[in-house]
Design a protein around this nucleic acid. Sequence first.
DNA 1: TGGTGATGTGAATCCCCCC
DNA 2: AGGGGGGATTCACATCACC
Lengths: 373, 373
Amino acid sequence: MASVKREEAIFADLPLNQILFGDCLDILPKLPSHSIDLIFADPPYNLQLQKELWRPNQTPVVGVDDEWDRFANFEDYDDFTTRWLSECRRVLKTTGTLWVIGSYHNIYRVGKIMMDLGFWILNDVIWHKTNPMPNFRGARFQNATEILLWAKRSREARGYTFQYQAMKNLNEGKQMQNVWHLPLCTGAERMKIDGKKAHSTQKPEALLYRVILASSKPGDVVLDPFLGTGTSAVVAKRLGRHFIGIERDPRYIGLAQERLKNTPFCGVDERELLITPSKRAAPRVAFGQLVEAGYLKVGTVLYSRDRRIVAYVKADSLLRWDSKEGSIHQIAALAEGKPACNGWEYWYYEDEDGQLISIDVLRARYRAENGLE
Amino acid sequence: MASVKREEAIFADLPLNQILFGDCLDILPKLPSHSIDLIFADPPYNLQLQKELWRPNQTPVVGVDDEWDRFANFEDYDDFTTRWLSECRRVLKTTGTLWVIGSYHNIYRVGKIMMDLGFWILNDVIWHKTNPMPNFRGARFQNATEILLWAKRSREARGYTFQYQAMKNLNEGKQMQNVWHLPLCTGAERMKIDGKKAHSTQKPEALLYRVILASSKPGDVVLDPFLGTGTSAVVAKRLGRHFIGIERDPRYIGLAQERLKNTPFCGVDERELLITPSKRAAPRVAFGQLVEAGYLKVGTVLYSRDRRIVAYVKADSLLRWDSKEGSIHQIAALAEGKPACNGWEYWYYEDEDGQLISIDVLRARYRAENGLE
DNA sequence: TGGTGATGTGAATCCCCCC
DNA sequence: AGGGGGGATTCACATCACC
């Protein structure tokens, strides 16, 4: 029975920090469902380059024409894409997300299939190459981009990881856009054999750094079904994540293992240097705790910024405004006629000098004085 | 017989410089085959907005929920897309090309269908908006792009128009890339009724300038099956091309006719085109890029010139000094007790020999090695 | 007339925990 | 799985009121 064979073949434990040798259509079914936090996939591009391309100086341009990158027709490519994406969706946790990178030759087919399979696109990210190859014929616009699709498992899936604050920090304090200006993988980073490119589409580590830092946490499991020379695994290791790589060409596996050997795993002592936790992750402080702890006395008068709204703190930490009672958030929303309002930012109290102080300052003080940071 | 009716209905002469009232699925079949030089299509995106979205200042975001953007499911959308694209392909000359603009909500479906119908993609052009709406919840990357697909009728089609030199001139003498930095349609250019936007998705004329100038010649026929308020027709007229517009909402037709009345035929000369803004991405290098690219490893120690101040590089490119965190500039200023300080000049790292090297040297190396000079 | 600060707004698939 | 409640979250411009 096929199902029994399949059960037997499934890994009892996740093969963490390993490169699995074989075709991803054979290996992925052996991974358990709902076990992976993040998938990065750089599938074949189906470029269908037929004629050779020559530079103006009569030297040939080396294109992508590896054997693994040829499909007979769209149907074959779509079938292959549907199969590996389906398996990826199965092994992904409901909190997990998937990245796929491609060019205009394949990404439109891939994106459509992703949507059909139920993936819910979060962003299409444009990798704008700072040093792209020129268009030698002058027949089109210079193609300077590849596209990454970032998606969660389904529209309903909740709890995916997005390190908003870390991305903002990387971008000099402004929220990171879906356009990334990054150079191609060149120079010493580019793996070479006898002076020639070891892999025709090796991705830069900086690209994977941003992908993995943005959408996973230390200790998460990062799966790459088309590992190639191992860029995603190397960066995952650097950033204190676990990796699982799948690759069917033993030559690439050898190169990836060499790179991994030279990559230190981010040590525990470095974990604290990874990223600043977001405000959302800060321990919650209920307004009632401030009242209980005496930071605000029962009966204290709270004001809106313009002193137009005046409310009183009750012993049960609800506010009384007019004849109405509710939480700091509910009364603020009510007073402003809005569906919701952050009470921590809305309310102020008066200090001895009659100055208005935000109650959010009190919350910060409470956190600081009670080891809640 | 349907075929007879169809034949009878076809326009004897092309309805040049007219706006045709009706659904493009009804009107397109009346146009003769192989008659159009250039098609620009801005179809519904099928945005699928569900809940209300509020800005941090508690005002609502006005989303697109027009009747014309609602489809029951992907199948309906695909069917609609297949039908109008098929007709577009029929009416296109073999030397003609087609542009379609969309967002990640629809462009992957559209692109896949285009390929299936036989269109051959020449470029995917990224419209990188210079002033996009932020992501208010900090839940994703800020979505700053729309995508235009530019395609010829078939792989074999020869002789399409690409004004390579004009594009090069527009781009300060360098090859025009497939990434266009252009602002949204705002201000006086935006059509308004009673102070409110007349159309929820009006495109900027500058975008259509590039499209029409790049891929057509004076006297060519430009067809727009989703004319809206007429941006493509207006720009075609200004550039000395003929237009044919199709629109099913009479209110939009009225607005478009008003704009056309105020537009001179061929009212643009070369000099005016040459001063069209062509902002290039600034070759700025953020400190974070050095960290991402591995020029500085996470945990690297940075020193002030006199080694008095010692800080650590975090994964999100902030520095940690004492218990404080901030950008290279902020921490330098803090450590020196100054209001501001240039971190690029302040910080040094140690090389293998214990020599202090300025991080500004690293920045210069990054620029040199990645074509950013 | 000119500068300054407040206000408005753009194709938006925009939270998460707990009951 | 659906509802309720806490509470976190914005960038580049254009316009306009006001001094």
